[in-house]
């Protein structure tokens, strides 16, 4: 069985691991690096529970072969908070009850962050389409959309405050 030595940056750390060539990046992140936030809900790219950021773009980790990660920069929800300081989205998801069972939550947070990084002031429709690749069966999406809107407002406000001081 062919195994490849993969070097990449994960959540800011230089890491390396050995991966069987046909292993999905999802399995490598979970089994080799212990990043259990990357969930397998379908294995076919249809639920978004394994959404990660790869070189500034969101991907489904289940649709990547592990060796593809060579030299890439990967972020998971484990890398979203700054130390003890939660990302505004994590905070608004908590306060807005935007999670119930919580299994889809990491994927939603990663996808929502990617949206706000690219479009700081999205409309409700833009948020809904940006998160359409993430399935949630508990919430009916309502509180997830609202928490994303709220985080956008907070991030805009703190940016303006930062700019004016």
């Amino acid at each position: 069985m062919q195994r490849t030595h993969v070097n990449c940056t994960v959540n800011g750390d230089q890491v390396d691991f050995l991966a069987t060539d046909d292993t999905s990046l999802l399995n490598a992140l979970r089994d080799e690096l212990g990043l259990i936030s990357v969930k397998e809900g379908c294995g076919t790219g249809d639920c978004g529970a394994c959404t990660i950021v790869v070189d500034d773009k969101i991907n489904c980790a289940c649709l990547m072969f592990a060796p593809e990660a060579e030299g890439l920069t990967i972020t998971t929800v484990e890398g979203m908070a700054l130390g003890e300081q939660l990302h505004p989205l994590q905070q608004t998801f908590l306060e807005g009850a935007a999670l119930q069972c919580g299994v889809c939550t990491p994927g939603f947070l990663v996808a929502a962050k990617a949206l706000l990084d690219r479009n700081p002031d999205p409309t409700e429709t833009e948020i809904r389409y940006a998160l359409a690749g993430n399935l949630c069966r508990c919430t009916g999406y309502d509180k997830i959309i609202r928490a994303t809107q709220e985080a956008a407002v907070q991030m805009q406000t703190s940016k303006q405050r930062g700019a004016s001081t």
Binding site: G45, I58, N59, C60, A111, A132, G133
Partner: peptide, 8 residues
């Protein structure tokens, strides 16, 4: 596909 798929 989704934004995730669009990036691939």
């Amino acid at each position: 596909g989704s934004d995730q798929i669009q990036n691939r």
